[in-house]
Design a protein around this nucleic acid. Structure first.
Length: 290
DNA sequence: AATCCGTGGTT
DNA sequence: TAACCAAGGAT
C-alpha cells in the first residue's frame, strides 16, 4: 500500500468496523452535533453519551437552552469537566438564537465567531452536520498523520496551520468521501492508533505506515507540557466548590464553602476565580450558579 | 505562546 | 500507584 491509498483504505475500514455512536446517526440534528462537539472537547466518548442524550431531550433546540439561565447548563453539565464549556455552550445558544434565527451556522467563519467554538469544532460542525468539504484535525488525526506520514511516534505540540495543511493534503476531493475520511482518521486514532500501545496488528494502513516502515522508532523531539498534578491544585478546589453549587438549590454560604478545603488562601483564590469566570455569583449572602 | 481550565478511566 | 490521557479553547 502507498501513502496515496491511505484515505480510501481508512474509508473502507470505517465502513466495516466504525462504531455506531449517537452523533453518527442519520438525520442527527446540527444542534446535536454542536452539543456533542462541545462535550467531546477533552472528555472521553463514553462519558459524553449519557449526558448528551439528557441534554438534547431537555433542550432540543438552541432556543430552548437560550431561554434558561446559564446556571442550568452548568448544572446539567454534571461531571463532564471543564464547566466553562457549559457556560460557553449556553452563550453560543444565545448567539445562535439572537443572531442566526435559531439555526446552527454552516460557514466556518460564522461558526468560529461563536463562544467556545475554535478551529476544530467549527470544522467538525461544518463537515459532520452539513457535509461540507473541509479538513478536520484533532488530537487523534494528528497522531495518525505523525505516524503514517511523518514516521514519528508522536505528533508533538499542535501547530494549527501545519496540522491543517497535512490533513488537507490527504483529503479526498469528493464531499462525501472527504467527510468519511475525516471521521475515519479520528476513529483510527481513537481505537487502533492509540497514544499508548497502538494496535498495529489490527491497523488497516499498516503497510503504508512510515513509522512502522522505519521500525517504530521512539519519539525524540519537542514534548508536550505535562499537565499539572490535579491533587491539591486550584482546579480541584474549584471543582469541589462547583460540585456544591450544582447540588444546591439554595445559596451556599461562605461557612459551608470554608468547610470544603483547609487552605483558606487557596480556597479564596478558587472562589474568586469562579466568580471572575461567571461560574458562580453572589446571592443573598451566599453563592449560586449564574 | 505558555498556561489555565475538571474529571475519571487506564497503564 | 503515579502518571498519562482524553473529538480543545480562551487568554
Amino acid at each position: 500500500m502507498k501513502t496515496s491509498d491511505i484515505p480510501n483504505a481508512l474509508i473502507d475500514w470505517f465502513a466495516r468496523s466504525g462504531r455506531a455512536l449517537p452523533w453518527r446517526e442519520d438525520d442527527f440534528p446540527a444542534w446535536g452535533t454542536l452539543v456533542s462537539e462541545f462535550m467531546l472537547q477533552q472528555t472521553p466518548v463514553a462519558r459524553v453519551i449519557p449526558r448528551l442524550a439528557e441534554w438534547l431531550e431537555r433542550w432540543p433546540t438552541p432556543a430552548d437552552l437560550a431561554a434558561e439561565p446559564s446556571g442550568e447548563a452548568v448544572r446539567a453539565w454534571a461531571n463532564l469537566g471543564y464547566p466553562r464549556r457549559a457556560l460557553w455552550l449556553h452563550r453560543a445558544a444565545v448567539q445562535i438564537t439572537e443572531e442566526h434565527g435559531g439555526v446552527v451556522p454552516r460557514d466556518v467563519p460564522t461558526l468560529l465567531a461563536l463562544t467556545g467554538v475554535g478551529d476544530y469544532t467549527a470544522r467538525a460542525v461544518a463537515v459532520f452536520a452539513y457535509g461540507d468539504r473541509h479538513p478536520v484535525i484533532d488530537t487523534n488525526g494528528r497522531r495518525v498523520i505523525a505516524r503514517a506520514i511523518h514516521g514519528q511516534a508522536e505528533p508533538g505540540p499542535p501547530r494549527a496551520a501545519a496540522d491543517l495543511a497535512d490533513m488537507a493534503a490527504l483529503l479526498p476531493e469528493e464531499r462525501e468521501a472527504a467527510r468519511d475520511f475525516n471521521v475515519a482518521i479520528m476513529e483510527l486514532g481513537q481505537v487502533v492508533c492509540t497514544a499508548r500501545s497502538p494496535r498495529c496488528e489490527e491497523c488497516p494502513i499498516r503497510s503504508a505506515c512510515a513509522w512502522v516502515g522505519a521500525g517504530s522508532p521512539e519519539y525524540f523531539g519537542p514534548t508536550k507540557t505535562v499537565q499539572a498534578t490535579y491533587a491539591g491544585s486550584d482546579r480541584q478546589v474549584r471543582g469541589l466548590i462547583l460540585r456544591e453549587l450544582r447540588a444546591a438549590h439554595l445559596p451556599v454560604t461562605g461557612v459551608e464553602i470554608s468547610g470544603l478545603w483547609a487552605d483558606r488562601v487557596q480556597l479564596d483564590r478558587a472562589l474568586a476565580g469562579l466568580l471572575a469566570d461567571g461560574l458562580a455569583v453572589e446571592s443573598q449572602g451566599g453563592y449560586v450558579l449564574p
